[in-house]
Simulated assay, not measured.
Amino acid sequence: MFPELARDDVYRLETRRLWLRWPRAADAPRLSELAGEWEVARMTATLPHPYRVGDAETFIKTSREDAARGEALRFVLTDKGFPRTLLGAIGVETGDGGPQLGYWLGRPFWGNGYASEAAAAMTDAFFLITGESQLGATVVAENAASRSVLESLGFVLVENLDSGPGRLAGNPTLRFALRRRDWQAQSDAACGFVRAPIEP
Protein backbone atom coordinates (compact mmCIF):
# COMPACT_ATOMS: atom_id res chain seq x y z
CA MET A 1 0.00 0.00 0.00
CA PHE A 2 2.71 2.49 1.00
CA PRO A 3 5.58 3.23 -1.41
CA GLU A 4 9.32 3.13 -0.72
CA LEU A 5 9.26 6.83 0.14
CA ALA A 6 7.26 6.22 3.31
CA ARG A 7 9.35 3.24 4.43
CA ASP A 8 12.46 5.31 5.12
CA ASP A 9 12.87 6.10 8.79
CA VAL A 10 13.64 9.74 8.02
CA TYR A 11 10.14 10.14 6.59
CA ARG A 12 7.97 12.29 8.84
CA LEU A 13 5.12 14.77 8.63
CA GLU A 14 5.05 18.34 9.88
CA THR A 15 2.02 20.41 10.88
CA ARG A 16 1.75 23.86 12.41
CA ARG A 17 2.40 22.52 15.93
CA LEU A 18 3.41 18.89 15.53
CA TRP A 19 5.92 16.44 14.19
CA LEU A 20 4.56 13.03 13.21
CA ARG A 21 7.58 10.73 13.29
CA TRP A 22 8.60 7.10 13.60
CA PRO A 23 8.36 5.61 17.10
CA ARG A 24 11.74 4.92 18.71
CA ALA A 25 12.90 2.57 21.44
CA ALA A 26 13.31 5.51 23.81
CA ASP A 27 9.59 6.31 23.40
CA ALA A 28 8.42 3.09 25.08
CA PRO A 29 8.12 4.36 28.69
CA ARG A 30 6.14 7.45 27.68
CA LEU A 31 3.91 5.48 25.32
CA SER A 32 3.18 3.07 28.17
CA GLU A 33 2.34 5.94 30.51
CA LEU A 34 -0.04 7.71 28.12
CA ALA A 35 -1.74 4.68 26.56
CA GLY A 36 -1.93 2.96 29.93
CA GLU A 37 -4.82 5.13 31.10
CA TRP A 38 -8.14 3.35 30.83
CA GLU A 39 -9.91 6.47 29.51
CA VAL A 40 -7.55 6.36 26.51
CA ALA A 41 -7.56 2.60 25.94
CA ARG A 42 -11.31 2.10 26.27
CA MET A 43 -12.02 4.22 23.19
CA THR A 44 -9.79 2.02 21.02
CA ALA A 45 -10.31 -1.45 19.61
CA THR A 46 -6.80 -2.80 20.08
CA LEU A 47 -4.76 -0.97 22.75
CA PRO A 48 -3.97 -3.50 25.49
CA HIS A 49 -4.95 -2.58 29.04
CA PRO A 50 -2.91 -2.29 31.10
CA TYR A 51 -0.42 -1.02 28.50
CA ARG A 52 3.00 -2.05 29.73
CA VAL A 53 6.42 -0.96 28.48
CA GLY A 54 6.67 -4.34 26.74
CA ASP A 55 3.48 -3.55 24.81
CA ALA A 56 4.98 -0.26 23.71
CA GLU A 57 8.17 -2.02 22.63
CA THR A 58 6.09 -4.46 20.58
CA PHE A 59 4.23 -1.55 18.98
CA ILE A 60 7.51 0.09 18.01
CA LYS A 61 8.95 -3.14 16.58
CA THR A 62 5.84 -4.14 14.60
CA SER A 63 5.41 -0.59 13.32
CA ARG A 64 8.87 -0.78 11.78
CA GLU A 65 8.30 -4.27 10.36
CA ASP A 66 4.89 -3.44 8.87
CA ALA A 67 6.25 -0.23 7.39
CA ALA A 68 9.15 -2.08 5.78
CA ARG A 69 6.58 -4.22 3.95
CA GLY A 70 4.50 -1.17 3.01
CA GLU A 71 1.53 -2.54 4.97
CA ALA A 72 1.13 0.24 7.53
CA LEU A 73 2.38 3.68 8.48
CA ARG A 74 2.35 4.47 12.20
CA PHE A 75 3.75 7.59 13.83
CA VAL A 76 3.97 9.14 17.26
CA LEU A 77 2.92 12.76 17.73
CA THR A 78 5.39 15.20 19.27
CA ASP A 79 5.20 18.91 20.03
CA LYS A 80 7.46 20.87 17.66
CA GLY A 81 8.50 23.15 20.49
CA PHE A 82 9.34 20.19 22.73
CA PRO A 83 10.20 17.37 20.29
CA ARG A 84 10.83 14.80 23.01
CA THR A 85 7.32 15.29 24.41
CA LEU A 86 5.03 12.57 23.08
CA LEU A 87 1.33 13.38 22.78
CA GLY A 88 -0.07 10.17 21.26
CA ALA A 89 0.02 8.02 18.14
CA ILE A 90 -1.60 7.85 14.71
CA GLY A 91 -1.48 5.43 11.81
CA VAL A 92 -3.03 3.92 8.73
CA GLU A 93 -3.13 0.17 8.25
CA THR A 94 -5.10 -2.44 6.37
CA GLY A 95 -8.35 -3.39 8.08
CA ASP A 96 -11.92 -4.39 7.35
CA GLY A 97 -12.95 -2.73 4.13
CA GLY A 98 -9.47 -1.50 3.23
CA PRO A 99 -7.06 1.07 4.72
CA GLN A 100 -8.12 2.38 8.13
CA LEU A 101 -7.08 5.51 10.01
CA GLY A 102 -6.61 5.21 13.76
CA TYR A 103 -5.27 7.52 16.46
CA TRP A 104 -5.20 8.23 20.18
CA LEU A 105 -4.05 11.09 22.39
CA GLY A 106 -2.83 11.09 25.97
CA ARG A 107 -5.38 12.65 28.34
CA PRO A 108 -3.27 15.73 29.17
CA PHE A 109 -3.52 16.78 25.53
CA TRP A 110 -7.25 16.37 24.93
CA GLY A 111 -9.23 19.38 23.78
CA ASN A 112 -6.38 21.22 22.04
CA GLY A 113 -7.09 20.24 18.43
CA TYR A 114 -4.02 18.01 18.16
CA ALA A 115 -6.01 15.01 16.91
CA SER A 116 -7.58 17.05 14.10
CA GLU A 117 -4.21 18.50 13.13
CA ALA A 118 -2.49 15.12 13.05
CA ALA A 119 -5.38 13.34 11.31
CA ALA A 120 -5.49 15.99 8.60
CA ALA A 121 -1.77 15.55 7.92
CA MET A 122 -2.01 11.76 7.90
CA THR A 123 -5.04 11.78 5.61
CA ASP A 124 -3.34 14.13 3.15
CA ALA A 125 -0.18 12.02 3.16
CA PHE A 126 -2.20 8.85 2.60
CA PHE A 127 -3.90 10.16 -0.53
CA LEU A 128 -0.77 11.89 -1.83
CA ILE A 129 1.56 8.88 -1.64
CA THR A 130 -0.75 5.93 -2.27
CA GLY A 131 -3.10 5.06 -5.09
CA GLU A 132 -5.89 3.97 -2.75
CA SER A 133 -9.41 5.19 -3.52
CA GLN A 134 -10.74 5.41 0.03
CA LEU A 135 -9.70 5.74 3.67
CA GLY A 136 -11.90 4.38 6.45
CA ALA A 137 -12.13 4.86 10.21
CA THR A 138 -14.17 3.26 12.99
CA VAL A 139 -15.13 4.96 16.25
CA VAL A 140 -17.19 3.95 19.25
CA ALA A 141 -20.49 5.85 19.04
CA GLU A 142 -20.03 7.63 22.38
CA ASN A 143 -16.71 9.14 21.27
CA ALA A 144 -18.08 12.49 20.09
CA ALA A 145 -14.61 14.08 19.94
CA SER A 146 -13.25 11.47 17.52
CA ARG A 147 -16.39 11.65 15.41
CA SER A 148 -15.98 15.43 15.19
CA VAL A 149 -12.37 15.03 14.03
CA LEU A 150 -13.42 12.74 11.19
CA GLU A 151 -16.36 14.87 10.09
CA SER A 152 -14.18 17.98 10.02
CA LEU A 153 -11.93 16.19 7.50
CA GLY A 154 -14.82 15.24 5.24
CA PHE A 155 -15.29 11.64 6.38
CA VAL A 156 -18.91 10.56 6.06
CA LEU A 157 -20.82 8.05 8.14
CA VAL A 158 -21.36 4.89 6.11
CA GLU A 159 -22.57 2.37 8.67
CA ASN A 160 -24.00 2.11 12.19
CA LEU A 161 -22.95 -1.11 13.88
CA ASP A 162 -24.32 -2.71 17.05
CA SER A 163 -20.86 -4.02 17.85
CA GLY A 164 -17.33 -3.11 16.88
CA PRO A 165 -14.00 -4.95 16.56
CA GLY A 166 -11.78 -5.99 19.47
CA ARG A 167 -12.56 -4.19 22.71
CA LEU A 168 -15.46 -2.42 20.99
CA ALA A 169 -17.40 -5.69 20.78
CA GLY A 170 -20.86 -5.13 22.19
CA ASN A 171 -20.59 -1.36 21.85
CA PRO A 172 -22.44 0.69 19.21
CA THR A 173 -19.84 1.68 16.65
CA LEU A 174 -19.73 4.04 13.67
CA ARG A 175 -17.86 3.39 10.44
CA PHE A 176 -16.72 6.39 8.41
CA ALA A 177 -15.09 6.73 5.00
CA LEU A 178 -13.44 9.44 2.92
CA ARG A 179 -13.24 8.88 -0.82
CA ARG A 180 -10.27 10.15 -2.81
CA ARG A 181 -12.44 12.26 -5.07
CA ASP A 182 -14.05 13.98 -2.08
CA TRP A 183 -10.66 14.58 -0.46
CA GLN A 184 -9.40 16.00 -3.77
CA ALA A 185 -12.40 18.30 -4.12
CA GLN A 186 -11.83 19.65 -0.60
CA SER A 187 -8.13 20.14 -1.26
CA ASP A 188 -8.82 21.99 -4.50
CA ALA A 189 -11.40 24.21 -2.82
CA ALA A 190 -8.98 25.06 0.00
CA CYS A 191 -6.30 26.01 -2.53
CA GLY A 192 -8.69 27.91 -4.79
CA PHE A 193 -8.13 25.56 -7.74
CA VAL A 194 -10.68 24.97 -10.46
CA ARG A 195 -10.46 21.59 -12.15
CA ALA A 196 -12.47 19.56 -14.60
CA PRO A 197 -15.11 17.38 -12.93
CA ILE A 198 -13.67 14.28 -11.24
CA GLU A 199 -14.83 11.07 -12.83
CA PRO A 200 -16.57 8.60 -10.50
Rank of each mutant, 00 (worst) to 15 (best):
G170Y: 01
F176H: 14
S116I: 02
L150Q: 02
A115Y: 09
V158P: 01
S116E: 10
T173H: 01
L161A: 14
G166W: 10
G113Q: 10
L178W: 00
Q134R: 15
L150N: 02
V156M: 01
R147A: 15
A121K: 13
G154N: 02
G154K: 08
A141P: 04
S163V: 06
V158Q: 14
A177R: 06
W183Y: 13
G170V: 08
G131T: 14
S146R: 06
G131L: 12
V140T: 13
G113L: 05
L174S: 00
S152K: 15
D162Q: 06
A118P: 07
L161W: 12
L161D: 02
A137I: 08
S116N: 12
A120N: 06
G113F: 07
A177W: 02
Q134Y: 01
G166A: 12
I129F: 08
T123F: 00
P165G: 10
I129Y: 09
A121M: 12
N143Q: 04
A177M: 05
L128T: 13
S152I: 01
V158D: 01
S163T: 15
E117T: 06
R181E: 15
G154E: 10
G113N: 02
N160S: 12
A120D: 09
A118D: 09
R147V: 00
G113R: 13
F155I: 11
L178I: 12
A115F: 07
M122W: 03
L153A: 03
V156K: 09
G164F: 05
A177L: 00
F155M: 11
A169V: 09
V140Q: 14
N171M: 13
S152W: 05
A145Q: 12
V158M: 05
F127N: 13
P172G: 07
A177P: 00
R167V: 03
G111E: 08
L153N: 01
P165D: 06
S133R: 14
V156G: 10
S116A: 15
D162C: 01
G154V: 08
G113V: 11
